[in-house]
């Protein structure tokens, strides 16, 4: 009776956790946060305020995923982070 013998089987909307579920979201950026190591006092405000978890506790910025919201630059008390226009091809 079944002309189509291919079966889907048990299939549900189950998803696997992983970084980059929306791809390399760094590509969304128009402005890029750039850290001045000299001015950084490691107060961790940029780390705690990053909505995307793209700044490590050692204040390393993950540009693959940083969306460039600019919160870190606004909140940095020493002015150690500046937003620089992205140069894109």
């Amino acid at each position: 009776m079944d002309k189509n013998e291919k079966k889907v089987g048990y299939m549900t909307s189950m998803s696997k956790p992983g970084k980059g579920c929306a791809g390399d979201t760094g590509e969304w950026r128009v402005f890029k946060p750039v850290k001045d190591e000299e001015k950084c006092n490691h107060c961790l405000l940029c780390w705690i305020f990053c909505p995307e978890a793209t700044i490590t506790k050692d204040i390393e910025i993950d540009y693959q995923y940083c969306k460039g919201c600019g919160i870190c630059a606004v909140e940095c008390p020493t002015g150690a982070i500046t937003m620089v226009k992205e140069e894109k091809q």
Partner: peptide
Amino acid sequence: FLAGSTACQGCPASLALR
């Protein structure tokens, strides 16, 4: 909360989850 989500830039919900 893993980086590279579909949240808007500066989303308060993603920060709150984190």
